[in-house]
């Protein structure tokens, strides 16, 4: 074992012991001061990140479900809205038609009433005219009678008067 005493392969027991002492001292100090806290911190961080990731995954799935639900709701709402609009339109159509019909009816009634009124007024007017004619003719007759009439003139006059009355009528 002479090669361990000198030269390249020299193995010094003192250095051997120093190595062990140095390394163990360093290990003990760092174990307490560095490695344990570091490993614990890293582990807990990894744990938390894992938890966060699974939470995020869960949240994503929930969100997706919600989204699907909302889409369904939206679709249903849209369909309902369309239905309501359609119904409204039909209703409106109906009401419009009714109103138009009613208006037509009313106008027709008004026209009828007006016609009746006019007819009645005309009849009234004719009746009045007739009575007036009788009065006037009576007056004319009385005046004529009062005057000296020759027979020819009288005849012509009566004819004329009669014609007048006819035309009026």
């Amino acid at each position: 074992m002479d090669f361990l005493k000198e030269g390249l392969l020299k193995t010094d027991p003192g250095l051997f012991l120093w190595t062990i002492i140095t390394f163990l001292v360093l290990l003990l100090i760092l174990w307490k001061a560095a490695w344990k806290p570091i490993v614990e911190a890293l582990d807990s961080r990894a744990e938390r990140i894992r938890g966060d990731l699974s939470n995020a995954d869960k949240s994503r799935q929930e969100a997706e479900q919600l989204l699907v639900k909302h889409k369904e709701l939206m679709d249903r709402a849209k369909a309902e809205a369309l239905e309501v609009i359609e119904k409204g339109r039909q209703e409106a159509d109906k009401v419009r038609n009714e109103i138009i019909e009613k208006a037509n009816r009313d106008s027709r009634e008004i026209v009828d009433k007006a016609k009746n009124e006019i007819m009645r007024a005309k009849e009234n007017a004719l009746a009045e005219i007739k009575s007036e004619i009788v009065v006037i003719s009576t007056e004319i007759a009385s005046r004529l009678i009062n005057k000296h009439l020759n027979p020819d003139d009288q005849k012509a006059f009566i004819e004329e008067t009669m014609n007048k009355i006819k035309t009026v009528q």
Binding site: D12, P13, G14, L15, W18, T22, V25, L26, L30
Partner: peptide, 24 residues
């Protein structure tokens, strides 16, 4: 055990000091 401090022992201590300086 020849415990005289050698250059190599100093290097070990330097390593130790560096480790402490970095990791604490």
């Amino acid at each position: 055990f020849d415990m005289r401090i050698t250059k190599w022992v100093l290097m070990l201590w330097l390593t130790m000091a560096l480790s402490l300086l970095v990791f604490i």
